[in-house]
């Protein structure tokens, strides 16, 4: 295997792992607030569809990103309203969001493609050009390093930046500490004067915004700007599992999503002659590994790395 081959593999891994990273970071913050939102898949679909629709009709890259982020946040707000204020079951509400989001995306996609004379929908070329790999003079042209570090699309850098910022926020900022207190023991946090409801709402909406952004990524990068049915296809669920894999740590999420990115692109990079495996096996691989990860992390349950204690349980002030 020569060096160029390895470099393009790493490049593909990062590109495939980025939407996972974004969604995982959002879910980490959500779970740190004590809410297990299983609606990631749905929020990503909502981001995909809203982003695509707005980009398709306005051809404006800013509106595109905003639509994806805001629609994800809005969906998460609905989840927060149901679980935090109305104290609905978190598992079922999250599932409802995933089911709804999938239907919503199909609906939007089919409506757009049905009105198009070619029965397909492709985004404006100028808009797409904003999301091409960046080109920094000198840096991008460096041998090896240029391709490895300075030739990604803009989302990749944004995702890593968000990972670093959320990591810093969680572990080094007083508000991050407060957020963790809310997730561990909402009653104690409330008693110490932390606005539990505000923290929960903000964290959940932030999670939705990042899922929406991951949806935007899928629209223009993964699906290449062409409307594709079922484009999320389980990435949201893998992200929820990645939260466990990363041990609720945004820094580790960077490596976790790279590993799962690798599983997704492996089939294109393993030499056919020596690894002649059926396509279906490669397709199943990320899900198989995720299942194994969930099982093994629960078997080797460590004391230090734990789900926030209050996760999944709604906080009821009257039950203090």
């Amino acid at each position: 295997m020569d060096l160029n081959y390895l470099i393009s593999f790493i490049y593909a891994v990062i590109v495939a792992g980025t939407p996972l990273l974004l969604a995982t970071l959002g879910e980490i913050i959500t779970q740190k607030a004590g809410n297990l939102n299983l609606g990631v898949e749905g929020m990503m679909y909502i981001g995909v569809a809203s982003g695509f629709a707005v980009a398709y009709y306005t051809k404006n890259p800013i509106f595109f990103i905003l639509a994806a982020i805001l629609s994800g946040a809005l969906a998460a707000f609905l989840y927060a309203l149901l679980t935090v204020t109305l104290k609905a079951n978190q598992t079922v509400t999250g599932l409802a969001l995933s089911i709804f989001g999938t239907g919503f995306a199909n609906f939007v996609g089919e409506t757009i493609t049905n009105t198009s004379p070619t029965r397909t929908a492709v985004l404006d070329g100028k808009l797409m050009s904003y999301f091409k790999p960046i080109n920094i003079p000198l840096l991008s042209d460096l041998p090896i390093l240029g391709r490895l570090l300075f030739q990604y699309n803009i989302f990749v850098y944004l995702a890593v930046l968000i990972a670093l910022v959320t990591g810093y926020f969680l572990f080094n900022d007083i508000r991050g500490l407060n957020l963790r207190a809310v997730g561990e023991n909402a009653a104690a946090a409330d008693a110490s004067g932390i606005d539990v409801f505000k923290y929960k709402y903000l964290a959940i909406c932030f999670g939705g915004a990042l899922s929406g952004l991951a949806g935007a990524y899928i629209s223009v990068i993964t699906a290449g700007g062409t409307w594709t049915a079922n484009s999320v296809s389980g990435l949201g669920w893998i992200s929820v599992a990645l939260v466990i894999f990363a041990g609720w740590n945004p820094y580790k999420a960077i490596f976790g999503s790279a590993i799962f990115g690798a599983l997704r692109v492996l089939r294109f990079y393993l030499p056919r002659q020596s690894f002649n495996l059926p396509n279906s096996l490669y397709g199943a691989l990320p899900f198989l590994v995720t299942a194994l990860v969930i099982i093994f992390t629960s078997i080797f349950n460590s004391k230090e790395i734990q789900q926030p204690a209050g996760c999944g349980v709604n906080y009821d002030r009257e039950e203090r």
Binding site: F100, G103, N106, E110, T111
Partner: peptide
């Protein structure tokens, strides 16, 4: 779109 039914169910 037939997916309207799914949306409604959600």
């Amino acid at each position: 779109s037939a997916s309207a039914a799914d949306v409604l169910q959600g």
